[in-house]
C-alpha cells in the first residue's frame, strides 16, 4: 500500500524510473516522457530557495560582493512556457512570499511582481515556445525589464523614493546571467511529456 505522500504528483515512481534508466537502457526514451510536478515545479522551487539563501551569505571573495539574482524569476518565466498549471502559480506566490520575508521587502511585493510576469507569459506562451533561442532570450530580457520596472514603480509608490537605478541594473545583469538555466528547463521539460502537448 502506498503511503499518502507517495500518491499523485508526490509519487516517487518517476524518480525511480530515472534512476533505473540512468544505465541508458533501450526503454529510456519512452519512460522519460512522464514528468510529474515534483520534477518541474517543486524541485526547481526548492533549488531556487536554496540558491537564494546561499547567495545571501555575507561573504566577499577578494573584496567583491556575491551577486543577488532573483532566482524565482527564472521559474516565473519558464513555468508558463512549459505548460499551464494550477499548481505553478500557487507555488510561485509562495516563492514570492519567501522573498518578501527573506529579503524583508514589503508584504506582497515580490509575489505581485512575479505573478504579473507569470500572467502575461501564460497568455503569450504560444508566441515564445518553439522559437529560436534568440527570440526566447529577447522575451527573457523583456520579462526582466518589466519585472524590475514594476518593482521600481511599486517601491516608489510605497516609500515615496525612487531607488538607485544603477543598483537595479546590477541586479538585472545578475539575473540575466541565469538565462542558461531558463534554456535548460525549457529544453528539458517543454517536449518531455506527451501530456504537456
Amino acid at each position: 500500500m502506498k503511503t499518502p505522500l507517495d500518491r499523485g504528483f508526490f509519487s516517487r515512481d518517476n524518480a525511480k524510473k530515472f534512476a533505473r534508466l540512468s544505465g541508458k537502457s533501450l526503454r529510456s526514451g519512452m519512460a522519460s516522457r512522464v514528468i510529474g510536478p515534483w520534477d518541474w515545479i517543486f524541485l526547481p522551487a526548492l533549488l531556487a530557495v536554496a540558491a537564494t539563501v546561499i547567495l545571501g551569505t555575507p561573504f566577499q571573495p577578494f573584496g567583491f560582493q556575491l551577486p543577488e539574482p532573483v532566482w524565482p524569476l527564472v521559474l516565473a518565466f519558464a513555468w508558463p512556457l512549459i505548460r499551464p498549471s494550477y499548481i505553478a502559480p500557487v507555488v510561485l506566490g509562495l516563492l514570492g512570499l519567501f522573498l518578501d520575508f527573506y529579503w524583508s521587502a514589503p508584504g506582497g511585493f515580490y509575489t505581485l511582481n512575479l505573478m504579473l510576469i507569470y500572467g502575461v507569459l501564460i497568455l503569450a506562451r504560444t508566441y515564445v515556445v518553439g522559437q529560436d533561442w534568440r527570440v526566447v532570450f529577447g522575451a527573457w530580457l523583456g520579462a526582466e525589464l518589466a519585472f524590475f520596472s514594476i518593482g521600481v514603480l511599486f517601491m516608489a509608490l510605497d516609500t515615496g523614493f525612487v531607488v538607485r537605478l544603477w543598483g537595479v541594473f546590477e541586479q538585472m545583469v545578475a539575473t540575466t546571467a541565469l538565462f542558461p538555466v531558463v534554456l535548460y528547463m525549457l529544453e528539458k521539460f517543454v517536449n518531455a511529456d506527451v501530456r504537456f502537448q
Binding site: V90, G93, G96, G108, F109, T111, M115, G119, I122, L123
Partner: peptide, 25 residues
C-alpha cells in the same frame, strides 16, 4: 489557460492587499 489565469488573479489580489496593508516605510 483561463482557469490558470483565474488562479493568477486571485493570488495577485491577495498579494496586492498585503502590499497595500504594509506600513514598512
Amino acid at each position: 489557460t483561463w482557469a490558470v489565469m483565474g488562479i493568477v488573479v486571485v493570488v495577485s489580489i491577495i498579494a496586492a492587499l498585503m502590499f497595500l496593508g504594509d506600513r514598512r516605510e
